[in-house]
Structure formats: C-alpha cells, structure tokens
Design a protein around this nucleic acid. Structure first.
Length: 342
DNA sequence: TAGGCCATCTGGTCCT
DNA sequence: AGGACCAGATGGCCTA
C-alpha cells in the first residue's frame, strides 16, 4: 500500500531505518536484522550515527555510554550518551520532518525536469529520457539553436542534428533521430500511443536529404525504438542570417559523440548573439496545442495580437504565436518573427 | 545476471 | 534553530 507522500509510479520498497528503532531488532518486514549491511554508511550503522554530537549536549540525566568496543579504535571527543526514549522520539520527529522535506524537494526537482523533458525537441510518452540524458539534450538543444541562429543554419540541417545528438547515449540518439525520421515520414511508423503526442502537423524536415541512416551518431536502420514525436513548434525555422557576432564553433569542437553515456565536460555554451531580423518560414499550425512552460513573467502581455514580445539577455524577441487554441501567458513561441536589440 | 536508473533515507554543511 | 542543499548509501525495477 502506498504511503500518503508517494506519488504515482513511486515505490514503497525503501524502508526507513527509523522504523527499526525502539528496541525492535527486526526489520519492518521481518527479514532483516539490524546488524544487516542495509543503511550502513561509511562503515557506520545508522543506528550508531543517530547518536551524534547533537545528542551529546542534552539531557543531563542521561547515562553515559558503555565501554568502547575493545576491537574498534578509541573514539575521540565527548562521551556519547544513550538514546533515551524521549530523545529517540525527538530525533524521530526531526528525521521524519527532514525526510518529508527532502522528498518534497526532490519531487520539485523532478517536476522541473519533467517540464524540461516536455519542451525537448523530441518528447516521447513511451520512452522517457533519463535525467542525465534530459540535461544533456537540453544543453545540446540550446547549443544547436544558438548555432542555428549564429550561422544561419536551418534546424533541418545535419549540423543541427549533430549538435543535438552530441554526447547522447545511443538510445537517446536513436530517439532523436527517430523523431526526425518521423518528421520526414509525416507520422508513418509512429506508435499509436505516441501519435497522440504529435501536436500539429509533422515537422517539415523533408527535402533536406538527411536520411537518418546517414547520420554517424545513429544506428543504421534504427532498431525500432519507441520513437517519440518531433514537436515542430520547437524547431524554429530560421532563415539564413548573416553577421553573427561571435565565433562559430563547430560540433567537432566538442568532445562528446561516443556511444554510451560518456562524461560531458564541454566548454560552456557561448551567449546567444543576434543582430539581424529573422523571418518565419512556415505558417503556424491551426491545430497546434502548445506545451505550457512559458513563464508569464518573461513575456510582455501588452504585445499585439498574435505576437508576444519576449525579452531575453538584452534582446527583444517578437514571437508569433497561435491564438486559436490557446491563450497567453501559456502560449509558447511559435516562430521568431523578429529579433532586435533596444 | 550485471548494469543503469531511480526513489528514498541519512548526516553534514551552509545559510537565514 | 530550522530549513535548504548536497552527496553517499541502499535496494528495487527494468532491460540487454
């Protein structure tokens, strides 16, 4: 039975060592003695760590701890005192509270990660990106978009995809490549459960000649992973742009690119630098159902109909957004129509 | 079965 | 003092 704090998909498998206290020498499920290696940290049983320095200072009436373990090293510092019943209860209350806070904190972190997943260029309901892969892909996505703006590349270009997949594991690369393939094939081959995730028409990626099998980072033939969807809204179709301000960096400058999940210590992504107007290339979809991750605080709600002024890093970005199916402030940028500095 | 990923508990440290 | 953050440890689940 799930505990009140548990969320969907979470397990009840990990048992708090606190449940073993108060003289109960058996584990809650009755099959694990306290002397088990379970919940041992750095060779110290949690039971003994629980009587830390904090406990030493209180409860004058407490008895002093018995003799040191003759086999173990002599312990320095003030003598520890036994856990009285009252102290155990105080400790337990503190620990329970702290655990709840920590769970809540981690849930918040996971929620944020889930938000990040959902705005990734490929978002699959059936193949969820791991945490580390989500962060890598997000990093790559920012890089790829920066390069696309900087060098006037199309998001349909091979370079864009190469940057996107840099340092990703093989399955994730396959997922991304599969998403692109999906875009090219107009949904052919999508699993039914993923087809619902296709928001709007498939991304217009055809005509570029970028067959997935030609990409070095993907497996030839794509061993039929559960491909996700390529959200066309995330691929900002940018017209070629001249005059980028800072130096280009080719994907080859990065040291990722292997199979598996290699360490990723790329140089920091340079700041986005935009100096000329960008014109949208594709009409917005009338069927588009946007994700919901655009902060109201980052958008100027006084923008004219169909557009949102977006301020970032000293630039004003005018974004064309669909008003047909959704409303600000949760409308994501559909297309960049212009970018200028004030 | 090994390895990857995950949720959870925990004590330490830092900050308010 | 209490909370946030962090890293280590642990065991369960899943997959190749």
């Amino acid at each position: 039975m799930a505990k009140p704090y548990m969320r969907q998909g979470e397990r009840e498998d990990v048992v708090s060592p606190l449940q073993w206290m108060d003289g109960d020498t058996s584990s809650p499920d009755g099959d694990m003695p306290l002397s088990s290696h379970r919940y041992r940290t750095n060779g110290l049983n949690h039971q003994s760590r629980e009587m830390g320095s904090e406990d030493v200072e209180e409860d004058e009436e407490d008895e002093e701890e018995g003799q040191e373990d003759e086999n173990g090293p002599k312990r320095r510092g003030p003598k520890r005192k036994r856990m009285t019943k009252a102290r155990q209860e105080r400790f337990r209350a503190r620990r329970v509270k702290a655990n709840a806070r920590e769970r809540s904190r981690m849930h918040g972190l996971n929620d944020a990660l889930e938000n990040l997943r959902s705005i990734m260029p490929c978002h699959s309901k059936t193949q969820k990106l791991s945490k580390i892969e989500t962060l890598r892909l997000a990093r790559n996505y920012i890089c790829a978009l920066s390069e696309a703006l900087e060098e006037g590349q199309s998001t349909e270009s091979r370079a864009f995809m190469e940057t996107l997949c840099k340092g990703l594991s093989q399955p994730t690369s396959n997922l991304v490549a599969g998403c692109l393939q999906l875009g090219q094939a107009s949904g052919v081959g999508v699993r039914p459960e993923d087809r619902h995730g296709v928001r709007g028409p498939p991304a217009v990626l055809g005509g570029v000649g970028m067959g997935v099998g030609t990409l070095s980072y993907s497996s030839p033939g794509l061993p039929s992973p559960p491909y996700g969807t390529l959200d066309s809204a995330h691929l900002l179709h940018l017209r070629a742009m001249k005059g980028g301000v800072y130096e280009n960096h080719s994907p080859n400058e990065y040291n990722g690119g292997g199979v598996g999940t290699p360490p990723y210590d790329d140089p920091p992504t340079p700041p986005l630098s935009i100096s000329s107007n960008l014109v949208s290339k594709q009409e917005p979809s009338p069927h588009y159902l946007p994700p919901h991750h655009y902060s109201p605080s980052s958008m100027d709600q006084t923008a004219t109909q169909g557009q949102v002024l977006y301020q970032t890093a000293g630039y004003d970005v005018r974004l064309e957004v669909p008003y047909d199916s959704y409303h600000p402030p949760h409308v994501p940028p559909r297309q960049i129509t212009s970018v200028y500095r004030d």
